[in-house]
């Protein structure tokens, strides 16, 4: 019998996927519904904004923005 699960399909790189899984663990598995494959997860509809924010914070710590030294005029 076919079943439909409502949610947001997240497409991302495997590295980002790993971070999402980690965030999910920290939030008592309250975000991810189905872990589909390395580049796709299904998350709860109402957790999309939260995950976006958490991912941004996580990336801020790990990825350093290359300072664009504006060259002289």
């Amino acid at each position: 019998m076919p079943r439909a699960l409502a949610g947001v399909l997240i497409e991302c790189d495997p590295s980002i996927k790993a971070i999402i899984v980690k965030i999910d663990l920290e939030h008592h598995n309250d975000i991810v519904i189905v872990d589909i494959d390395d580049e796709h997860v299904l998350i709860k509809n109402d957790k999309h904004e939260l995950l976006k924010q958490l991912l941004k914070d996580a990336l801020k710590d790990t990825v350093r923005e290359a300072e664009d030294s504006s060259e002289s005029e």
Binding site: M1, P2, R3, A4, L5, A6, G7, V8, L9, I10, E11, C12, D13, I16, I20, I33, V34, I36, L42, I43, N45, H48, L51, K52, L55, L59
Partner: peptide
């Protein structure tokens, strides 16, 4: 935008 989200439905359980 390291991830893209698409609201919708995952359909499973097809025989």
């Amino acid at each position: 935008e390291r991830m893209a989200g698409f609201p919708g439905y995952l359909i499973r359980g097809l025989e």
